[in-house]
């Protein structure tokens, strides 16, 4: 038996909008601690990890650890039918092959039930170890989205390098090249407008902009984004979901030919 009631239903809508283009089918895992998802894109280059903690729900009941396979496109379609102020409840019975989304309007005058078929999805769950990163950049999420969008009109890849000077995003394409440098800036009116750079070691990594752009679909979820970089690891682009958890995107870097010989 599973029953999760989320007062701020728009949050779930935003979550789905941010991942449905990256991943088509995924298993949602439900445990006593929270509602989570881990899924890779079909080419196994990017991974999304979502966590919505139990405390963030108004009512949270999950009797035992369960996973529910869903087509994210279909789920997004159903959630589109919920109003932005609606309360969303996710319900499923043991052994059932459907999940029900219930939408309640804020003044309780309309209640809608949408039932969706579940799927069997064989997906590999990856263990992601806690890691120390060489550099961590926190910046306004809209700024990051803007940079990715601008650069992708010039080239296909972005080189992110963090030095004492700041964080530099650069690209190169047929028509020319672009460099955008963001310096540390903490003297702002609102804390979410700050750009904070923590660096243990300078890093310089290359990524496909196509994926970065897809990640920025999560921008409506959070005012800030945190980008963690290490030369040994995939980059992590994290959007915190207020009082509930996070959505994290991992992206494997591009590797130069000679380093690739193993």
């Amino acid at each position: 038996m599973l029953e999760l009631r989320l007062v701020q239903g728009s949050l779930l809508k935003k979550v789905l909008d941010s991942i449905k283009d990256l991943v088509t089918d995924a298993n949602f895992d439900c445990s006593a601690t929270g509602f989570s998802l881990q899924a890779m894109d079909s080419s196994h280059v990017a991974l999304v990890a979502l966590l919505l903690r139990a405390e963030g729900f108004e009512h949270y009941r999950c009797d035992r650890n369960l996973s529910m396979g869903m087509n994210l496109g279909n789920m997004a379609k159903m959630l589109k039918c919920a109003g932005n102020d609606d309360i969303i409840t996710i319900k499923a019975d043991d052994g059932s092959d459907t999940v029900t989304f219930m939408f309640e309007s804020p003044n309780q005058d309309k209640i809608a039930d949408f039932e969706m078929k579940l799927m069997d999805i064989d997906s590999e769950h990856l263990g992601i170890p806690e890691a120390e990163y060489d550099a961590i950049v926190r910046m306004p999420s809209s700024e990051f989205a803007r940079i990715c969008r601008d650069l992708s009109s010039i080239g296909d890849t972005v080189v992110i390098s963090v030095t004492k000077e700041g964080v530099k995003f650069s690209t190169r394409g047929d028509i020319g090249a672009a460099n955008i440098v963001c310096r540390q800036n903490t003297t702002v009116d609102k804390p979410e407008e700050a750009t904070v750079i923590e660096m243990n070691k300078p890093v310089n990594l290359t990524f496909a902009l196509r994926y970065m752009n897809s990640f920025t679909k999560a921008t409506p979820l959070s005012n800030t984004v945190t980008i963690s970089l290490s030369s040994e690891l995939p980059v992590v682009v994290e959007y915190k979901i207020a009082e509930m958890g996070y959505i994290r995107f991992y992206l494997a870097p591009k590797i130069e030919e000679d380093e690739n010989e193993s």
Partner: peptide, 13 residues
């Protein structure tokens, strides 16, 4: 970079 790991969850279906 990441190796497969087992999940604790059981498919509901």
């Amino acid at each position: 970079f990441f190796k497969p790991a087992a999940t604790g969850s059981v498919p509901i279906k």
